[in-house]
Design a protein around this nucleic acid. Sequence first.
DNA 1: AAGTTTCG
DNA 2: GACA
Length: 241
Amino acid sequence: MACYAMKRRLLGGESMTPMNSGDKPTSAMHGDLFSEASTPAALVPGAYILRGFASEQDQQLLHDLQTVLAQAPWRHMQTPGGLAMSVAMCNCGRLGWVSDRAGYRYTTHDPLSGKVWPAMPPSFAALAQSAAATVGFARFVPDACLINRYQTGAKLSLHQDKDEQDFSQPIVSVSLGLAATFLFGGLRRSDPVLRTELNHGDVVVWGGQARLRYHGILPLKPGEHPLTGDVRINLTFRAAG
DNA sequence: AAGTTTCG
DNA sequence: GACA
């Protein structure tokens, strides 16, 4: 109880600081640590949803997230157009995704502190690698984890992940806390869009022919989750460098 | 534009 | 949802 309350404070704690100044997927394998709770389902060719894949590790992940946030706070980055994103972000791992008026890119250092991004917790890396391996990306080694916090109304409009160097490596997206509607489109912004609800513990992996598909998140609906309070947390793992 | 606003 |  008290533990949950503390987590909610830390997850929701505000730091309104603008950013100035492969492998071919195969059928599901039986992993040893993570895959028992889920059966991969294909959303489109190359994109898989592993329902509840992170459920067994949720407490560990949220605990380790606190360690990351103690070193690098949430911040609302700016789009190249100069507007603030509604989603609050942080990074861990060797590389962190940043956006500001200069554009999108990966950096080794947090622009807010000048320090390197916090290390990627072993629990994060293990989960991401296990999820990727489950759908056939056995060699996936993430060097970047973008951490997104959605509060009520926060959203991410349709976009492509294309700031990474090697598109043969997949994207692994972990959902924690409140549910949200995930949009999955095609290779052009104007292509039709599938939508699916992502719940606490769900993991989405996309690569191969799906790697550059547009995707996004609809505005978060108000709600309360026992572990995260009024927010949704998303961990997005990439091999960026 | 990883955006907001406006119109059906 | 489709446009600007």
